[in-house]
Design a protein around this nucleic acid. Structure first.
Length: 278
DNA sequence: TGGTATGTTCCAAA
DNA sequence: TTTTGGAACATACC
């Protein structure tokens, strides 16, 4: 469920609950979710205090004291809950952190895609992650460089966490719509104004989504308000809010992709090579 | 029953 | 070498 805005919201909600607490116990039901292994995760967190809760891309980052890091990725259906028992199906509870004051942090995940990772070195653990799109490092120039370095279609490129960390299927579609760019447009063929538009679109959609606390579709993620403000995602066949054309749906890079065929350019026919007869 | 799902990774093919 | 497509992971929902 969660992309950058949802993970950021979760971090903000849980930060006041977990920061400063000491982990007295940890239990996990589905060992495959633990990396590099159940023993390493147990040793990594039990007995340590949570000094800070943060985010890197779609990872929730627990900074521990004595030093160490716990990274949690919620993937498709993971969620945190606070308290003795979870609101979801009890059978979906996958892991529990028990604090020294008996409070509990629960990790529920029906599909078991989520991951709990212990890392002694945060930099090494996040070495494969790309630039943070809301950081000062993500400039128009930086985006231009990333787009030039690869020769790929925009949609799969923006979803690639090694390039930009945090965009998922919803906000990629929304950013491309705001920028007026076709999801199939080639990354190395954008004009400078198009790059600038894409940069502004990515930042504005993520910032707005954080303000509205993310997008809620089902019980996997609650409390969001952004779903009422999406322009293309989930609006297949409905009129484009800008021009009225039916929003198109296509499978691009194995992901359902929503776009306005009229407002979003650079997809294919626009890029027929210009042939000059001579 | 089959298709789809807000994510990632691995492998094979182009 | 780089990019793309398919399958896998595991479960719920329509």
């Amino acid at each position: 469920v969660p992309e950058l805005p949802e993970v950021e919201t979760i971090v903000r909600r849980f930060r006041p609950l977990v920061e400063g607490r000491r982990i007295a116990g940890f239990r996990a039901r589905w060992k495959k979710q633990l990396s590099p292994g159940a023993a390493a995760v147990w040793r990594g967190c039990v007995g340590r205090r949570i000094a800070r809760l943060g985010r890197r891309g779609k990872f929730i980052v627990f900074e521990l004291d004595p030093p160490g890091w716990l990274l949690v990725h919620l993937r498709m259906s993971g969620r945190f809950e606070w308290g003795a028992n979870c609101e979801c199906e009890p059978g979906h509870l996958r892991a529990t952190w028990i604090f020294d004051d008996s409070e509990r942090l629960l990790f529920c995940d029906p599909r078991k895609f989520g991951r709990i990772i212990y890392a002694a070195d945060l930099a090494a653990a996040t070495a494969d992650l790309g630039v943070e799109p809301l950081s000062r490092a993500f400039t128009v120039r930086k985006l231009a460089e990333l787009l030039r370095q690869h020769h790929r279609r925009l949609k799969p490129l923006l979803l690639d966490q090694r390039v930009i960390a945090g965009l998922g299927n919803i906000y990629t579609d929304e950013a491309l719509f705001r920028a007026g760019l076709h999801p199939l447009a080639r990354s190395d063929r954008l004009t400078p104004p198009q790059v600038a538009a894409l940069h502004a679109a990515i930042r504005s959609v993520l910032r707005q989504a954080i303000i509205y606390q993310g997008t809620t579709f089902d019980h996997a993620y609650a409390g969001g308000g952004m779903q009422q403000r999406l322009a293309v995602y989930g609006r297949r066949g409905q009129p484009c809010l800008r021009c009225g054309t039916a929003i198109q749906y296509a499978r691009i890079g194995q992901r359902g992709t929503h776009f306005c065929p009229r407002c979003q350019r650079g997809g294919g026919s626009q890029h027929r090579p210009v042939r000059r007869s001579r």
